[in-house]
């Protein structure tokens, strides 16, 4: 992939970071309001991107709106930098913005992610950008957006509470293992995007800015740093993050989130860190 210089001169094919300035302004206004109303979904005029809807267009638009020439971008999908869609999105920004990219969590100023939060604790200088397929945490319970908007205005989350209660009564625990809804700053119920429940606690009081972009559903929302983010649960059935009870076969970690890999046709399994950078760091003496 040959990196092209940022193109922001008249006559060049695309603007820096692809989006035109009017679109960036519109997204930036939405981001500021999203930070001011933590967990509230802000509709925005999402644009068609050169990547398909559902493949990270919301995250890409948010990243494009915040990205500066000195930023260092990391893109992960399923925790890994080398999954095909992560490779593709990273290459897109290297091409249309000419910015530096990295696979190292510690070096990144912006981390665009699908389905994971890195294991390494984030810092104040970092912004997480989440790709969100369905921003509405209530959509399985109430698909009508006009109705869910009303419920959010009222702070009426009884639908979600009843569902959780029924799950616990029926099967002894919450039915959701990923994309488990969270309460943000005690007011808005929010989809954390389809991260495993294991990652939910990382949203709570994080030093980093957390931005969420849903392109097809045309919503942006945010969690500011140091904001209370609590997984929906009941006092007598506290939320329980889960991971496979094994050690990483590459680095030996017993605390990281693991991918389970079918190793042979006898049903043998091995487990390795889903966060490839974390696994690499653990292996480095």
């Amino acid at each position: 992939m040959n990196a092209m210089p940022p193109r922001n001169t008249p006559g060049s094919a695309y603007n820096f970071a692809y989006l035109d300035e009017a679109t960036k302004r519109m997204i930036r206004r939405a981001i500021l309001k999203a930070l001011a109303i933590p967990g509230h979904q802000i509709p925005f005029g999402a644009r068609e991107m050169p990547l398909p809807y559902g493949w990270g267009t919301g995250g890409i638009q948010v990243t494009a709106a915040i990205l500066g020439p000195r930023d260092v971008l990391k893109v992960i999908d399923q925790g890994a930098d080398d999954t095909t869609n992560a490779v593709s999105i990273r290459a897109f920004f290297a091409k249309v913005a000419g910015i530096a990219t990295t696979t190292r969590t510690a070096e990144a100023t912006i981390i665009q992610t699908r389905h994971r939060i890195p294991e390494r604790p984030l810092t104040e200088g970092q912004v997480m950008v989440f790709q969100v397929p369905m921003p509405e945490p209530l959509f399985r319970l109430e698909p009508r957006l006009a109705e869910t908007r009303r419920l959010h205005a009222l702070g009426d989350y009884s639908l979600a509470q009843v569902k959780l209660y029924e799950d616990i009564a029926k099967q002894g625990e919450a039915g959701t293992s990923y994309n488990h809804p969270v309460m943000v700053a005690g007011r808005y119920l929010m989809s954390p995007s389809p991260i495993p429940g294991f990652d939910n606690p990382k949203l709570h009081n994080s030093p980093a800015i957390m931005l969420f972009g849903a392109g097809r559903e045309k919503k942006i929302y945010a969690v500011p740093p140091y904001t209370a983010v609590e997984s929906l649960d009941f006092d007598d059935h506290p939320f329980r993050p889960m991971r496979a009870p094994h050690a990483c076969s590459a680095c030996g970690s017993t605390t990281s989130y693991l991918d389970e890999i079918v190793a042979d046709d006898q049903g043998g399994r091995i487990y390795v860190c889903s966060d490839t950078d974390h696994c690499r760091e653990n292996q480095t003496p």
Binding site: N15, F16, L32, A36, G68, P69, A222
Partner: peptide, 16 residues
Amino acid sequence: VFGAQSGFAALMNAMA
């Protein structure tokens, strides 16, 4: 392009 980007970076950090 870069003026607005750096102005926004300040505003985003201020709001966050």
